[in-house]
Design a protein around this nucleic acid. Structure first.
Lengths: 222, 222
DNA sequence: CATGAAGTTGAGGGTGCTCTCGATTTCTCC
DNA sequence: GGAGAAATCGAGAGCACCCTCAACTTCATG
């Protein structure tokens, strides 16, 4: 029994899936999308299998781990973040572009608990998802630079600070979903008022280094 | 077998504890204090029993539930918050008093993961703890009123906004404990700069009502 | 120092989840 | 339409935790 790299029955080897298997795979992905969005990345996999109408065994046959789901689903999710970044850079007013980007990211999270978990790193994510996040936040430095150059954003606000802001507002979004789904907007507004250049008072705590951030949020860009 | 209100062997009825039982109870409380501070309110009770040097059965004999621990431990914890509030009201500069209060609360949380869980309501707490929290935040309105009257704090910042701020910074404290224990100070500084009267821009999202807040954080004052 | 009440013990049952694997069904292709 | 590869199924093992209870030990008191 040589070759066949991975452990058991993994349908690797690029062999085309049988029709029923392909259907089940699609159903599983659709179900996972829904379930992760509704209940977060920690949702029981049995719930996904149930909703896809297959057994738990079949689920594991297609996706040998929770991470395999995430790696398949999330790169796509992050293109939405990328689009937000593009829009932000194209905005006439750099400050408005920055605000729209931040608000947009939170808005996405408000509608997708799984994205919330991923961006705020509540649940550890596999390297693939980390890469996807990096991609989504690729233009982040540019957005900040532009808003600073326009004299709108305080100069001591760094990309790691934005990552921290995300990991700060995310739990609020999670808690208030359902009861007061706009509560985070108010909290964000207070915070943004503190990020305007005119509001700046000196801060004696240095920003996180990219390295420290990576250790805290092992799946997010810096 | 009449009277003896509660279910089984509960040592209620105010009968004085036997010497060994009293000793074990003290040990359990001390262990619980440590374990909750280190690992949060979700820590396994077996860890507490282990550290107290008693069996899990003895633990349940003294404290029939996790909540029984919390109800015994937390009222005391909250007196520290009360003291912070008193100090804040006594400060010469109302703004500094406000800042010192907020910073002090977070400092306590930074050194006690259990307090962090309780104030941010990560883990549901029993009514007794809720009452203790109410007590700790009793003077909160007064602190805010004073800082607003002095023209330092923006007038649209409410007590529920402060509760939200707490539930916002708490997760950051939790995540960065260990790696970057002062990171929250920087995030708080940005937020505080947004709370100064001079920084205020109109916000079109209303604050949470006390009722909404209670539903989100069922153990915190408004 | 004996007796019984008070207290302690820890194996074991319950829950909710993850993940496995041998038996079974279903497709595909000749 | 039949052979065999591919895919599915789901009971059950494993894990981490919660909580119970009948047997045992320790203390306090006469």
């Amino acid at each position: 029994m040589p070759a066949r790299s991975t452990s058991r029955s993994a349908p690797r080897a690029d062999r085309p899936l049988r029709a029923d298997a392909a259907r089940n795979r699609d159903r599983l992905l659709a179900a996972a999308s829904e379930v992760f969005a509704e209940r977060g990345l920690g949702a029981p996999l049995e719930e996904i299998a149930r909703r896809a109408g297959v057994s738990i065994g079949t689920l594991y046959n297609h996706f040998p781990s929770r991470d395999a789901f995430l790696a398949t689903i999330f790169p796509d999710r992050m293109t939405a973040v990328e689009r937000l970044a593009d829009t932000a850079l194209a905005a006439d007013d750099p400050w408005h572009g920055f605000v729209a980007f931040v608000t947009g990211v939170f808005d996405l999270q408000a509608h997708d608990q799984g994205l919330n978990d991923a961006l705020s790193q509540r649940i550890p994510v596999p390297p693939d998802v980390r890469t996807a996040c990096d991609r989504g936040f690729r233009h982040l430095e540019a957005i900040l630079r532009r808003a600073k150059k326009a004299g709108a954003l305080r100069p001591d606000f760094t990309a790691t600070d934005l990552a921290v802001l995300i990991c700060t507002i995310s739990p609020l979004i999670r808690e208030t979903r359902g009861t007061a789904p706009d509560a985070w907007r108010r909290s964000l507004a207070f915070h943004l008022d503190g990020l305007r250049a005119g509001a700046a008072h000196p801060i004696d705590v240095p920003p996180l280094t990219a390295d420290e951030l990576a250790r805290i949020l092992p799946g997010q860009a810096g």
